[in-house]
């Protein structure tokens, strides 16, 4: 596992989260938190539907898609019929179940996850273009959002040796 002695260690990860489903948002949050826990700097940039993850009213109400999600399975492992996923309430039920399973693994709700990441020094940013497009204001966003910035600003803080940009 540790045969990477000749490689430059990862020092900073910059993540762009552009989607608002449970799994897309949590991918970003788990990676961001995982980075700060390893002593790696983390900068998270939320854009388009990813903004839901840092919008106060929506952050703890994320859903997973039950339509158009071929990896979706019934609890027993059978395929999940797309038509079933279209019935009102099914998506909410499936999403509640996902959250319950995550809670069992000690994975927190989104607001608490942001607390954890920023407690470790991780930085959270919102995309100016998407904030304007969705007609959001600074006060609609989590208090953990450091600033509303352009992608240019974000790239400007993504430099340096041992830095990676990850897009989800």
């Amino acid at each position: 596992m540790n045969d990477s002695k000749n490689e430059t260690p990862l020092k900073k990860v910059c993540m762009i989260c552009s989607k608002g489903t449970i799994e897309d948002v949590y991918a970003t949050l788990v990676m961001g938190n995982g980075a700060v826990m390893e002593g790696i700097e983390a900068r998270l940039f939320f854009t388009f539907f990813g903004l839901d993850a840092i919008t106060k009213k929506r952050m703890n109400r994320l859903h997973t898609a039950t339509v158009g999600n071929p990896a979706m399975r019934m609890p027993g492992g059978l395929p999940f019929p797309t038509l079933l996923g279209a019935i009102p309430g099914v998506e909410a039920g499936v999403s509640a179940m996902m959250k319950k399973e995550m809670e069992r693994l000690d994975i927190p709700p989104v607001d608490e996850f942001l607390d954890m990441i920023t407690a470790g020094g991780g930085e959270i940013y919102a995309c100016k273009l998407a904030v304007d497009m969705f007609k959001l204001k600074k006060e609609d966003l989590s208090e953990h959002v450091l600033d509303i910035i352009t992608i240019g600003d974000f790239f400007a803080m993504s430099g340096g040796e041992g830095t990676q940009i990850i897009f989800t």
């Binding site: 002593g39 000690d106 020094g121």
Partner: peptide
């Protein structure tokens, strides 16, 4: 299974405090 979340809720130290005590690897 240990997580920083669990330690943060232990009443001993919050997560920010845990990072201060063990810089660069609160759980490791």
């Amino acid at each position: 299974t240990l997580t920083i979340r669990k330690v943060g809720k232990s009443g001993i130290v919050d997560i920010k405090g845990l990072y201060k005590l063990f810089p660069g690897g609160p759980l490791k």
